[in-house]
Simulated assay, not measured.
Amino acid sequence: MKNIPVESLKVTESIKLNELPTFIDLECSEKKKDKVLNKYREALSDHQDIMYAHDKYSVLICLQGMDTAGKDSLIREVFKEFNPRGVVIESFKTPSSHELEHDYLWRHYIALPERGKYTVFNRTHYENVLVTRVHPEYILNENIPGINSTDDITPEFWENRFDSIINFEKHIQQNGIIILKFFLHLSKKEQGARLLRRLDKPKHNWKFSPGDLKERSHWEDYQKYYEEAINRTSKSGAPWYIIPADNKETARVLVAKTILEEVSKYTDIAYPELSESIKKDIPMYKEQLKQEN
C-alpha cells in the first residue's frame, strides 16, 4: 500500500480546495485496505481503553463535508471496534427551538466528550459559518441583538464568529480535549454519481431529498466558505485535515491512520500504576481470593 504521510493531509498554510485532490490511489486492493483499516481501528480501540483508565484526555473528532461525502459510513467503519461506552456520535441538524434559545455554540459545548472517551461530531459547530453563510437568513432565527435583517450581517460578524470558534477550541484543548478536524473532500462529479445511486437503488431512496439538489446548486459557494473556514481556523491545537473522499475506503483508512498517529503523540497517556501500598499486598489479595474458591 502506498504510504500517505499524515502531515501531507494537515492544513499548515493557506490552501485552495480546487487545487487539492479528491482522489488518491493507495495502489492496493479493497481487501488490503480493509485489512489495514482493521489494524488501525483495533489499535485505536486499545488506545481508548488506556485513555479511559488514564482519565485526563478525551478526543473530539469533527467531520465535515458536502452531502454524500461518506461521513456516516466512515463513522461506522472506523469506530466499529470501540467499546460502545467509549465513543459517542453526535449529529447536528437544524437547531431545535430549544437550542435556538441559547447561543450557537451551546449545543456543541454540552455534547463534548467526557474524559477518557471519544465524541464524533457528524457535522459540527462549523455549520454556523458554512450553511449560514450560504443561507444568511438562518441567522435571523438566532434572535441576536442588533441583527434584525440580513443587511445587519456584516463581514465583521463572521470574523467575530471565527474568533469565537477559535477561542472555543483553544479553551477545550487546554482542558484535555484532543481535537482533530476532517474535511472529506469530494468532487462534484462523484457527488452527482452518489445521488444517482440513491435514486437507482430502492433501499437507498429514503436518503434522497429534493433539498439535496437545491444545496448542490450552491456547490461553489460551499467550496468558497469551506476554504475560508479551514484556512481561518486550522491551528496547531485544532488542525484541519483534508481527506480525499471520492473513494470511501481510502478516506476511512486515511482518517483512521491520522487519528491513531496523532493520539499516539501523547506519550503520557498510560495505564495508572497501583500505589506501592497496594502492590506489596498483592500476594495477600491473591491468596484471599484463592481461599474463597
Score class of each variant (00 low, 15 high):
K39C: 05
V87N: 03
P84M: 08
R85G: 14
I24T: 14
D49Q: 15
E27V: 12
M66G: 08
S58K: 01
S45W: 04
L63G: 00
V87M: 02
T68K: 06
I89R: 03
G65T: 05
Y52V: 07
T68A: 12
S73E: 05
L63T: 00
D34T: 07
V87L: 05
S29M: 08
V59E: 04
K35A: 06
Q48V: 12
F82W: 07
V88C: 01
I50L: 10
E27N: 15
E90W: 01
L74R: 02
D55H: 12
Y52N: 15
S58P: 10
Y57I: 04
V59Y: 01
A43F: 06
V88M: 01
F23H: 14
I89P: 00
E27C: 09
K71P: 01
I75G: 00
F82D: 09
K80A: 13
L63Q: 02
L74G: 06
V88H: 03
F79H: 08
K35L: 11
S73L: 02
S58H: 06
C62T: 04
E27Y: 12
Q64A: 05
Q48G: 12
K71Q: 02
Y40G: 06
C62H: 06
M51F: 10
M66N: 05
V78F: 01
L37I: 11
A69K: 05
I75L: 00
S91E: 00
D25Y: 14
K71R: 03
G86L: 02
I24A: 08
R76L: 03
K56Y: 15
G86D: 01
K35P: 06
I89E: 01
G70P: 05
H54N: 14
I75C: 00
E27F: 09
M51G: 07
G65H: 00
V87T: 06
I24R: 10
D67R: 00
I61D: 00
E42T: 15
K56S: 12
L60N: 04
I75V: 03
C62A: 09
V78L: 01
I89Q: 03
K31I: 15
K33P: 02
S45A: 11
K56Q: 14
A53Y: 14
S45I: 02
V78D: 07
G65S: 05
E77W: 10
C28K: 12
I24P: 11
A53R: 15
V78S: 09
L26C: 11
D46W: 03
P84F: 00
P84S: 11
M51P: 03
R41W: 02
I24Y: 08
L60D: 05
D46V: 07
P84A: 04
G86H: 09
V87F: 01
T68D: 08
D46P: 06
Q64K: 09
D25M: 12
A43Y: 07
D25I: 11
Q48M: 14
D67K: 00
M66I: 04
S73P: 02
S73N: 08
M51I: 13
F23N: 13
P84Q: 11
Y40T: 08
P84Y: 02
M51K: 12
S73D: 07
K32R: 14
K71V: 00
G86I: 04
L60I: 04
A53F: 11
V59I: 13
K35F: 04
L44D: 05
R85S: 07
I50M: 09
G65R: 06
F23C: 13
V59W: 01
Q64D: 03
R85Q: 15
I75K: 00
E42W: 13
